[in-house]
């Protein structure tokens, strides 16, 4: 599903975020990505989203070579990836429901279907009763779950999460990890960047460890 072949990323200021990275994540696999801040976790995720372009090497996602991908095809790529952000990236000018419905709206889904899908996703994250609220009225954990509902509402083949439990207490964190596990059981490829090592260890999944732009653990095809 996700293949990195000798991928390097050097930013314009000369900072080398990733060095000669090789990585394969299979379809339906769930992996964790760890490392100190600045180790290149975010860069790796951004390369998969094509928010950044690799300086060297090839990134292939869902059969598409992102290094050669034209700009006009980026939206289609992103529609196949559900992303959860540490800072939630919610819109505070609309309700929880409308936030979650956004990916379906972009896809041009039928309004009737949108209602069902959004409620199913909100039900999954336990926020069905708060669909009419503005996300600003929700707690951090709830906002994070709205973000997760938005990421999964379209049932994308890939889910990426960047520190999804960053600001949450341990109990909430493990609840949210458990949610990702449930999606993974449905053959969804899940990649979670996190530095909550205890939690990751308890999950018993493949762990990719980055240090100074190189994979020191978990790379290659398992």
């Amino acid at each position: 599903m996700i293949h990195f072949t000798n991928v390097s990323k050097r930013y314009e200021n000369g900072y080398e975020a990733l060095k000669h990275l090789d990585l394969t994540i299979n379809k339906g696999e769930m992996c964790f990505l760890t490392g100190h801040s600045g180790a290149g976790k975010s860069t790796l995720l951004k390369l998969i989203m094509r928010m950044e372009k690799a300086t060297n090497g090839q990134v292939v996602v869902n059969g598409e070579n992102l290094t050669k991908m034209s700009k006009s095809k980026i939206p289609a790529l992103r529609r196949n990836i559900g992303v959860v952000f540490q800072n939630h990236q919610l819109l505070f000018d609309r309700s929880v429901f409308d936030n979650v419905a956004l990916p379906l709206l972009i896809e041009g889904a039928d309004p009737k279907m949108i209602g069902n899908r959004v409620r199913a996703a909100l039900d999954k994250v336990g926020l069905l009763k708060k669909e009419k609220l503005n996300p600003i009225m929700l707690s951090g954990g709830e906002q994070q779950r709205v973000g997760i509902a938005r990421a999964v509402v379209k049932k994308p083949p890939i889910i990426l999460a960047d520190e999804p439990t960053g600001n949450l207490d341990p109990k909430l964190s493990s609840e949210i990890m458990h949610l990702f596990e449930q999606f993974n059981e449905r053959e969804v490829t899940v990649l979670i960047a996190s530095h909550d090592l205890d939690l990751i260890a308890r999950m018993g999944k493949r762990v990719l460890t980055l240090r100074e732009g190189s994979l020191i653990n978990g790379g290659g095809n398992r």
């Binding site: 599903m1 293949h3 394969t24 299979n26 379809k27 339906g28 292939v60 869902n62 059969g63 289609a76 529609r79 196949n80 896809e107 379209k154 049932k155 994308p156 083949p157 449905r186 053959e187 969804v188 095809n221």
Partner: peptide, 23 residues
């Protein structure tokens, strides 16, 4: 609509986890 056709439906009918390194 492609994501839905791609077999990520709940049933996962057309899903086959192919461990091909070069899809």
């Amino acid at each position: 609509g492609k994501p839905h056709n791609r077999g990520v439906t709940p049933r996962g009918a057309s899903v086959s986890a192919r461990p091909q390194p070069q899809v």
